[in-house]
């Protein structure tokens, strides 16, 4: 008896139990409608389309026929699809790596206190806020072979976006450039959550800066890092604008990531059905990753 009373008190003070009434559901109606019309409906439409035969005539007149898994068989047995898939993974992997390293470096830098820190940090966020049309075109001009700033600085005349290797590096860097400030914000929040006493104790025990970083910062930053990497992966994997504006998938398909591949199938070739397969696959990969992520998160919480 003596034990149960305080337990009840703790419970009631932490989570007051209230009955949800129907009227309260009303408040979520706009959100549900919004999500339903703008997210779920198009999503379902896309998945349905991937099981139908949809050309330009079916888009105009409707009555598309279901063809089962034909579209999937067509795409999954196609070298072009897998090539594009591979390019997507290389592009995404590279971008996430550069974003994370740059984001972490920036976060560590801005974690210190120095005059003008807040202004600088806000300025950096511009890269993240800037519309892609602007940043991608600026990158394109910087890298232009004839008038580009990079060539002027280096004294070279290289068409960076006209060669497969450099074009891939360019779109990777351009994407990472805009994602890095976002990663910085997340990681900085993580850094601020690490108690200063840990570093103090480490210093007393004789740990140098590198040891502190490796033994304290990195392990304690792991949950935030995972979130950052996952979010970056998802937004990079579905990036269309940066790549399309900079290279249109070229040269010779060297930067034709999955979204660009799907766009070409749909809007240049009017093969909406197989394009829907490509976009569905585009959905599957981040979803699978997210499931793994949430699993590991739950494990960590219960542990």
């Amino acid at each position: 008896m003596a034990i149960t009373v305080p337990q009840q008190r703790v419970l009631s003070s932490r989570a007051p139990i209230r009955r949800t009434t129907a009227a309260e559901y009303l408040f979520v109606v706009p959100a549900v409608l919004f999500v339903g019309f703008t997210v779920l409906y198009p999503l379902a439409y896309n998945v349905v389309q991937s099981f139908q035969k949809v050309g330009i005539a079916q888009i105009v007149n409707g009555n598309a026929k279901f063809v089962g898994l034909d579209n999937y068989a067509d795409q999954l047995g196609r070298a072009e699809f897998w090539k594009s898939f591979g390019i997507s993974l290389i592009y995404t992997g590279g971008t996430v790596l550069v974003t994370f390293v740059a984001g972490l470096a920036l976060a560590l830098f801005f974690h210190r206190d120095f005059p003008g820190r807040n202004v600088l940090r806000a300025l950096l966020l511009l890269a993240w806020v800037l519309p892609t049309v602007v940043s991608a075109n600026v990158w394109r001009w910087l890298l232009d072979g004839t008038y580009g700033l990079l060539n002027t600085v280096l004294g070279t005349e290289i068409f960076w976006l006209g060669k497969p290797g450099t074009a891939m590096a360019a779109v990777t860097l351009a994407s990472a450039w805009s994602f890095a400030p976002f990663a910085m914000v997340l990681l900085l929040a993580g850094l601020q959550g690490i108690s200063g006493t840990l570093y103090e104790a480490a210093r007393i025990d004789g740990a140098g800066p590198w040891a502190q970083f490796r033994r304290i910062t990195l392990p304690l930053l792991k949950p935030v890092s995972l979130t950052t990497v996952l979010l970056c992966f998802i937004s990079t994997f579905k990036t269309f604008d940066t790549v399309f504006l900079m290279t249109q998938g070229g040269p010779g398909g060297a930067t034709e990531v999955l979204p660009v591949y799907a766009y070409k199938l749909a809007f240049s070739f009017y093969k909406f059905d197989v394009a829907a397969v490509a976009t569905t696959m585009l959905l599957v990969v981040p979803v699978v990753l997210s499931v793994f992520y949430f699993r590991s998160l739950r494990k960590e919480e219960t542990a």
């Binding site: 398909g253 060297a254 240049s268 070739f269």
Partner: peptide, 18 residues
């Protein structure tokens, strides 16, 4: 549009050396 895209891809592939 498709055929022209394929031809252009041939130029890109052979000119970029891939």
């Amino acid at each position: 549009s498709e055929v022209m895209t394929h031809l252009q891809a041939a130029l890109q592939a052979s000119a970029s050396g891939s």
